[in-house]
Write a protein that binds this DNA or RNA. Structure first.
Lengths: 215, 215
DNA sequence: CATAACATACTGATCAGTCAGTTTAGTTCA
DNA sequence: TGAACTAAACTGACTGATCAGTATGTTATG
């Protein structure tokens, strides 16, 4: 590369941001490349300089979604000791991310719909599902080993917890009528209730650094 | 009407069934009218005799979805006395319907995606959401009055329960990798756990929670 | 023989992707 | 220093394919 006017990364970011806004407004199929180009203020030819196809934009948008939101959450909660608190924190932070970056989550429904058509997108989604399932199942394992709680069927529980968060996302993306601050607080209570305690704990489940070490 | 070859109702049913299969395979935007016509074995002209537009087919499909699945469930559980059992039964029957008629539920994602584009579809969906929210909130009220359980924030709880079922639908429609029989059983346990008991019951649910918790 | 029910060729609009050309930033060399 | 050169970055008109909806014709039925 001899002389980029701005860095290739910046342009791609701009394109993705524009695409995100367009997809949110009209969905994937209804959004034209020209609209995306207009939205980020350059021409269609420029867009095709950075991305080979409309589908490639969508896929890269999903990649960014995963990297920037979900993996960040998983990193952030890594320092929390108790498995229970970590699980609760995932729900809380997901709700907060949803509040802050609703447009990105809107793209999820686009992915779901596209996955009917495109096998590669479906595979990407399934990989993510399996990944989150493993994460959560692992956390349930940790909590059980540490004696924090016991759940009878960890895999199903993990699936249902993920399902709940996903349902909240759907509802919010379509409607935006829920009070997310309220949801954020409630998710904590619900998650807690879903994890029956083996032994009595002192405080409300958050923040307590009891003697027993986590994972 | 002088002489229908088959009744108009039958034809519409056939068209909707064909559309349902097509939408499931390819999504709404990617499905052509010709494909739907081919799927139900007649021509495009015939389809337009019964429906004025592609969108009208989608909307009627949603109407059937609501009438045939969700309202039926609500009617069926009407005879159950205990509010708790009624709530649990909704979850169980929804899981069973999902198992039996996955194609119909697939159309839900199509509706969600279409609602970005079409305000009337969005309004239809929102009406349904509000309706189910009221139903569930009412059930929580009933249970509380009968002394079966107490939940601190009924509206949010209703929303989260609906969200969970919706998430299960998404997961199953996209992946079909969950054991729905297992889900059906687990949903019962999860729903029970989400309804903290006022008085001691025999079940293994997390009854050790005292009143003040979380939030 | 009237009309409901169905078939099919057509149209106008849309849109993803292409391509030939233009502009700008950086490099070379006198 | 700057003119000549080069390739990256960008433009926008164009194309070929697609498809919803229509127009017009055909067949079956009471």
């Amino acid at each position: 590369m001899k002389g980029p006017r701005v860095s290739s990364g910046i342009r791609k970011q701009q394109i993705l941001a524009a695409a995100k806004r367009c997809f949110q407004r009209k969905g994937y199929a209804q959004t034209t490349i020209d609209e995306i180009a207009a939205e980020y203020g350059m021409s269609k030819g420029s867009l095709y300089w950075y991305y080979p196809s409309k589908k490639a934009v969508l896929i890269d948008l999903f990649r960014v979604f995963v990297e920037e939101t979900l993996n960040r959450i998983l990193t952030e909660i890594g320092s929390i000791r108790s498995a229970r608190d970590r699980i609760v924190a995932i729900g809380e932070r997901l709700a907060r991310s949803l509040q802050e970056d609703i447009e990105l989550f809107s793209a999820l429904i686009v992915f779901w719909e596209s996955s009917f058509l495109d096998e590669s997108i479906r595979e990407m989604l399934m990989d993510q599902y399996r990944f989150y399932g493993r994460i959560l199942t692992g956390l349930l394992d940790d909590g059980e080993r540490a004696g924090e709680f016991a759940v009878p069927d960890k895999k199903i529980y993990a699936a249902l917890m993920i399902a709940m968060m996903e349902g909240v996302i759907v509802r919010q993306v379509l409607n935006k009528d829920l009070d997310l601050e309220e949801i954020r607080r409630s998710v904590s209570g619900v998650m807690n209730r879903l994890l029956p305690e083996k032994e009595r704990q002192t405080g409300p489940a958050g923040s307590s650094h009891t003697g027993k070490h986590g994972s």
